[in-house]
Computed example of a mutant assay.
Amino acid sequence: MRTIGNVLWLVLAGWWLALLYALAGVLACILIITIPFGIASFRIAGYALWPFGRTIVISGNAGVFSLIGNVIWIALFGWGLFLGHLFAGLLLMLTIIGIPFGIASIRLAVVALIPLGTRIVDTHDAALPSYSRG
Rank of each mutant, 00 (worst) to 15 (best):
L19I: 00
F77R: 04
T55A: 09
A22R: 15
R107A: 10
L23E: 12
H124N: 14
L17P: 04
C29D: 07
G102A: 02
F37A: 15
V71R: 12
A88K: 07
L113V: 04
I30E: 03
F37R: 07
L90F: 15
A109L: 05
P115T: 14
P115H: 14
I74N: 01
H85E: 11
T34R: 06
R43C: 02
F52E: 02
D125N: 07
I106T: 09
I72Y: 04
A112K: 09
F42T: 07
W9M: 00
G60A: 09
T34A: 11
L91W: 10
V7C: 06
S132T: 15
G98D: 03
S132N: 07
F52A: 09
R43L: 04
L83S: 06
T3F: 13
H85W: 13
C29F: 10
W15D: 03
I72E: 01
I114S: 13
T118V: 15
R43G: 08
A104F: 02
N61V: 07
T34G: 08
L94H: 04
L67H: 12
G60D: 05
Y131Q: 10
Y47Q: 05
Y131W: 14
V71M: 05
I32F: 08
V7T: 15
G53I: 05
L31I: 02
D125T: 04
A48C: 13
G78L: 05
F52K: 08
I114G: 00
G25D: 07
M93G: 11
V7R: 10
D122G: 13
P36Y: 10
V110P: 00
L27G: 03
Y131K: 01
P115S: 14
L94N: 09
L116M: 14
P51G: 02
I58F: 03
P129M: 11
P100E: 06
G78T: 02
L116Y: 03
H124R: 14
A75T: 13
L23N: 05
A28W: 02
L17H: 12
L108W: 05
F42K: 10
G98N: 08
A104H: 00
L19H: 13
L128P: 02
S130G: 00
I33E: 00
I120W: 05
G134C: 01
L76Q: 08
L90E: 00
V64P: 00
L86P: 00
L116V: 11
G84T: 09
I114L: 14
I103G: 02
I97E: 04
I44A: 11
S130F: 12
T95A: 11
Y21M: 00
V26N: 00
L49S: 03
R133M: 01
A109R: 04
V121I: 13
G63S: 09
A112I: 01
F82L: 12
L49G: 07
L31T: 12
L67K: 12
L116N: 12
L10V: 01
L12N: 02
A48H: 06
F82W: 15
L81P: 12
Y131G: 00
R133E: 11
L90M: 13
P51C: 08
H85F: 12
L49Y: 06
G69C: 09
S105R: 11
I32H: 05
A88Y: 06
L27A: 15
H124E: 15
S66M: 03
L86D: 04
W79A: 11
A127Q: 14
I33G: 07
A22W: 14
I120D: 01
I39D: 02
G38Q: 11
G25P: 03
T95F: 13
A18R: 14
A13I: 08
